[in-house]
Design a protein around this nucleic acid. Structure first.
Length: 587
RNA sequence: GCGCCCAUAGCACAACUGGAUAGUGCAUCGCCCUUCUAAGGCGAGGGUUUCAGGUUCGAAUCCUGAUGGGCGCACCA
């Protein structure tokens, strides 16, 4: 319908050009909006106001000219000029109900479109370091990323979801060492745990499985382990960073490559398995879990550094290799290889993005926590330097969820082991409520998350309002059937013209908006628009439910009404699917 | 100190990307269940869109500055 009006206006512009009212070379963007106020008709355009300068006449006069040129269409009941120069279109009721047939025909495909033009897109999200279970902060990225991926799929993109596993580097060594030290305690060694080690309970669990598998094979005495190790923080001459680094070296030396690798793998695999399971329970799945270690093993990192060298964007200073990211607007150059020969995390990341592009994706979407915002320019710089288009990378920053419990702000630290896990949240409020809560606000908005409130008032979550609308429809349809009223959709569609109450036309209008909302939300990566749309649609349904009886004697009326709510049921289901929320048949 | 993001009703958030009288849920108040689920509906109150300027037919939205908050400024990952 919107497109129809846009087409009409395109024709009008042509004619205005022929008449010499506006210059030939002008190609104004045609803007057709759903009106907020019903007295303004169904659709409105601001075309006259936008062209007022080019035409050199006041908007209302120009609007009159435009209206004269609008061709007669059966679906348009009348056209009005209002306010400063808006042109309002009134659509007749039977045309409005035409959408119902489209919904029922296309079913779960209703709302799909092709704004993605089949382009392949890789959505990378969560990608939390496997150093511990996911916490509530990661939940937002998970819920948001999964919804964006769904949204893009519906909008005609070919979507792959990926989790980048940072299973290499110092943090992982700290993790492995932490596990080993706990294991030593299990073997009755007296170990003073490093202040910089991972302290969470899950570390004990991993060390227990290690004990079960290896017995005391990996046991070394405390004396051996701590001999010559720099003192920890709090002691004289202590340095917590040096302390833990020394311990890592000790672990590697005392255990030998094979056994150290065994501890390391046990830790990573256990945590990764837990994360996978947790996300799956949250309805979030990935096509690919991309390992940083695999990246190193395949030599992609060296290859991409060479590529940068070939482009003359690498230089040496102080024994380290630097990338000239300032050439591309970054605030300073960045180290890719340290003076000790180790490659930085940034080097991996350059290679990773290079690899993503090599896999042939048209568009890369990275969803990061907002704390990584300083990182965007250097990654884009690297892509540019390697001769790829930085526009192919879209980085979406998700603001942190700030957690409160009883009005107190909670600190979240994986290291200290003090955090609320995603799993706890799911268990307390349920997946549906959690997914909806996360996805309700746009990504750049800060989010206050009061855990007590989320739990105690979970019934106030709008998700139930929407689910209830769906369940209500299911119950009505079931009861109609029980009473022996067989719903025949063809008859119902025929009879739709008999409808016309405020609630009924309102529902039809809302249904018609859905494809448009999906397309728009997809292009700007804003699943919250779906959530808001569904709230409105549910409201329209509840309102209708209270105003009219659906299961009535009159055959035509009953068939028409049930057909209409069938369409609502379908759209709620489709919309909830995008944001990863279930559509229950009863509540 | 420099940079990025944010600021809208008591609370949490929207506002079709510059449009008409700024909306939705919760909370508050008043009505509506002998009728398909009251986890619902109808109605009321609640706003100088943080503040001060600017841009234009028109600003919550764009520009400048101020204030308040989040985050980042490593040869860490």
């Amino acid at each position: 319908m919107k497109q129809q009006i846009a087409q009409i206006l395109t024709d009008v512009i042509q004619q205005l050009k022929v008449q010499g009212v506006i210059p030939e070379d002008l190609s104004p963007r045609i803007n057709v909006e759903n009106t907020r106020d019903k007295s303004h008709g169904d659709f409105a355009t601001n075309l006259a106001m936008m062209l007022t300068k080019a035409a050199g006449m006041p908007p209302r006069i120009l609007a009159e000219k435009i209206v004269e040129l609008v061709s007669e269409e059966a679906v348009i009941e009348k056209v009005e000029i209002a306010g400063p120069g808006f042109i309002n279109f009134f659509v007749n009721d039977s045309a409005k109900f035409a959408i119902v047939e489209a919904v029922l025909k296309q079913k779960s495909d209703f709302g799909c479109c092709n704004v993605g033009q089949g382009k392949s897109v890789l959505v990378e999200f969560v990608s939390a370091n496997p150093t511990g279970p996911l916490h509530v902060g990661h939940g937002r990225g998970a819920a948001y990323g999964a919804s964006v991926a769904n949204l893009l799929a519906v909008a005609g993109f070919k979507v792959s979801r990926e989790y980048y596993v940072n299973d290499a580097g110092r943090q992982m060594d700290i993790l492995a060492t932490s596990v080993w030290l706990r294991y030593l305690s299990l073997c009755d060694e007296e170990v003073t745990f490093p202040s910089n080690g991972y302290k969470g309970d899950y570390i004990y669990e991993i060390s227990e499985t290690l004990k079960a598998e290896f017995g005391s094979t990996l046991k070394r005495t405390t004396l051996e382990v701590f001999a010559g190790v720099c003192a920890d923080e709090g002691q004289e001459g202590g340095d917590k960073e040096k302390h833990i680094d020394d311990l890592i070296v000790k672990a590697k030396n005392l255990l030998g490559a094979t056994h150290y690798e065994a501890v390391f793998s046990a830790a990573v695999n256990s945590i990764l398995a837990d994360i996978k399971q947790d996300l799956a329970g949250f309805g979030v799945t990935f096509e690919e879990w991309f390992s940083e270690r695999a990246l190193m093993d395949t030599g992609v990192i060296d290859a991409s550094i060479e590529k940068l060298q070939a482009a003359d964007k690498i230089y040496e200073k102080g024994g380290a290799l630097w990338f000239r990211s300032t050439d591309y607007g970054d605030e300073k150059d960045r180290v890719v290889v340290r003076d000790n020969g180790l490659k930085t995390y940034f080097a991996s990341d350059i290679a990773y993005h290079f690899n993503k592009l090599e896999r042939g994706f048209d568009l890369l979407i990275d969803i990061w926590g907002s704390d990584h915002h300083g990182y965007v320019p250097r990654v884009k710089a690297a892509m540019t330097a390697m001769g790829t288009n930085p526009e192919a990378l879209e980085v979406i920053l998700v603001q942190f969820a700030i957690l409160y419990r009883g009005g107190e702000k909670l600190a979240m630290s994986t290291r200290s082991g003090q955090f609320v896990t995603l799993r706890e949240l799911r268990e307390e409020v349920g997946c549906d409520a959690a997914r909806f809560f996360y996805v309700q606000r746009k990504s750049e908005q800060h989010m206050d998350f009061d855990l007590d409130l989320a739990v105690s008032k979970s019934n106030e979550n709008p998700v139930y309002y929407i689910q209830y609308a769906h369940a209500r429809i299911c119950r009505v349809l079931a009861q109609a059937e029980e009473k022996g009223y067989i719903l025949d959709l063809d008859t119902g569609l025929e009879a739709l013209n008999g409808l016309g109450s405020d609630q009924e036309t309102h529902i039809a209008t809302e249904l018609a908006k859905y494809p448009d909302i999906v397309a728009r939300a997809a292009l700007v990566y804003e699943p919250h628009q779906i959530a808001y749309y569904l709230k409105n649609l549910a409201h329209a349904l509840h309102s209708y439910y209270n105003a009219s009886q659906f299961i009535v004697e009159d055959d035509a009326t009953r068939q028409a009404r049930l057909t209409l709510i069938c369409a609502v049921q379908q759209v709620i289901k489709n919309g909830l699917a995008i944001i990863g929320v279930s559509a229950p048949e009863q509540m």
